[in-house]
Amino acid sequence: MLEEIIVAGFGGQGVLSMGMTMAYAGMHEGKEVSWMPSYGPEMRGGTANCITIVSDHVISSPIVAEFDTAVLLNQPSMDKFATRIKPGGLLLYDESNVQHPYYNAAVECIGIPATALAIEMGNARLMNMIMLGALLKKRQLIRLSSIMIALKKVLPEKYHHTLLQNESALRVGMKIEGHAHLLHQD
């Protein structure tokens, strides 16, 4: 198993923490992992992205040009990374923040109303967890229990009271498939 994932969006959307959570969870399951963030001024309100790789074998390059899975949380990220998904790959995007998704027959492309659902849950910041839940559903990469263990590491202690909320958001994301907006066309 080798899964090369890009998560991209605005700074503040939980882009880096989502990738980091997957990496920690993968590590917890004994897998090889790497997490490579974009860093610098991009972190302060601009676009941010990170590459997370989860593998059964030693990871050679932590930097790759094409991805198995992309989680794209704004339009600039869609514009930049949608064309860099391997055939047979998966593209998840947040419907509230991506107005013009790209269509690619070779890629499974699913819009998730993640921001809307997070607001419904009363906390817009849960959006990234809903996206992650959707990803876990589509790709049997990591167990939910491992994600919860990872979240304890990724979230600063002062946010640990939100762990249950995060778990609910993950579960919301995992149920989403039924009413996801499928863009499986040319």
Partner: peptide
């Protein structure tokens, strides 16, 4: 380098 410094691994 910046990437090795910023990246996370086991």
């Amino acid at each position: 380098d910046g990437a090795i410094g910023q990246m996370m691994e086991k």
